[in-house]
Nucleic acid binder design. Structure first.
Length: 275
DNA sequence: GGGTGGCCTGTTATTACTTCA
DNA sequence: GATGAAGTAATAACAGGCCAC
């Protein structure tokens, strides 16, 4: 089933959950609740209109500065206006829009699926900048017929997904590093064994692998991004082997070297007694 | 020092899709 | 093949913490 068909179905009303508008509204509401006399058991998931009404009634914003309060009220007014005009814009963007339908009991949150068009535009903006300033956020929200809070949440989630993905990639890369180092360790053990055996043999011919022909140890090929802070001494590590043989490492090293001091790159696979 | 806003991280809830009897 | 329940992945929304201003 095409997702857009589902998106279009029954979501044109444009009522919104949560509320509060731009900024970290949920936390703001929490702080407001704690600083005012509001009941702590009040459900946090409310429709925006009642929530806004409560806020505008004065109890919820008592701790906010006048400027902030003014800004919040402006945003809330904008959102209210957006809701009024949302029906027309829903047609343009296919319907996920600025909020959720109210449940019969009005208590459960409705998660809205963004349309392909909305997601695509958000992705485009994310490619340009992974963060938004408040003006950009509001503008993008208007363009997408979403609330600024929704745009903000989308960017937060998107950054989290990106980071998670990068972590998985790094993990996979380090796994390969580990495998290669294990293999290299085996090779060196064999080589050591052979050299020891040669002690009792006639003078050997030159080694088959010259320094120029032999590939550098795997850890010397690690990109700079994998070089991290040494957990023991909490310095940028300075693997002399890597620095001596790898131009890239040298360049990176010179970029990050603190003035008047030397440090070593930390390689998690080779780091041992160096610190 | 406390208030506020932005961001991160972890969690929850919802939706869409897949599998299987 | 059609169907509904169960399982799963994706993700919007939320909560709480941290940090800078």
């Amino acid at each position: 089933m095409a997702q857009e068909e589902v998106h279009d179905a029954g979501l044109a009303l444009g009522l919104s959950l949560g509320g509060g508008g731009g900024g970290d509204s949920s936390r703001r509401r929490r702080r407001e609740a704690s600083s005012s006399q509001q009941c702590p058991l009040e459900p946090s998931l409310t429709l925006s209109m009642p929530d806004d009404a409560a806020t505008l009634s004065g109890g919820g914003v008592s701790s906010m500065s006048a400027v902030k309060r003014e800004r919040a009220e402006e945003e809330e007014e904008e959102e209210a206006a957006e809701m009024v005009s949302s029906t027309a814009l829903q047609a343009a963007f296919g319907g996920a829009g600025a909020g959720a339908e109210e449940d019969d009991d009005g208590s459960t949150r409705k998660k809205l699926r963004l349309t392909k068009e909305q997601s695509a535009l958000l992705e485009d903006r994310f490619k340009e900048h992974s963060t938004l300033n408040p003006k950009q956020k509001v503008a993008l929200a208007k363009q997408l017929n979403l609330r600024p809070r929704q745009v903000e949440v989308w960017f937060q989630n998107r950054r989290a997904r990106t980071k998670l993905k990068q972590t998985e990639v790094d993990c996979e890369f380090l796994k390969r590093c580990c495998e290669n180092l294990t293999e290299e360790n085996r090779r060196l053990q064999r080589e050591l064994h052979e050299l020891r055996a040669l002690k009792f043999a006639p003078p050997p011919p030159p080694p088959p692998l010259s320094a120029a022909a032999a590939p550098p140890p795997f850890y010397m090929q690690l990109p700079a991004a994998t070089l991290t802070i040494c957990p023991s001494c909490e310095r940028l590590g300075g693997s002399t082997a890597a620095n001596a043989t790898n131009n890239t490492s040298k360049a990176v090293d010179s970029d990050v070297r603190p003035k008047g001091g030397t440090h070593h790159f930390f390689n998690p696979f080779t780091h041992s007694a160096a610190c």
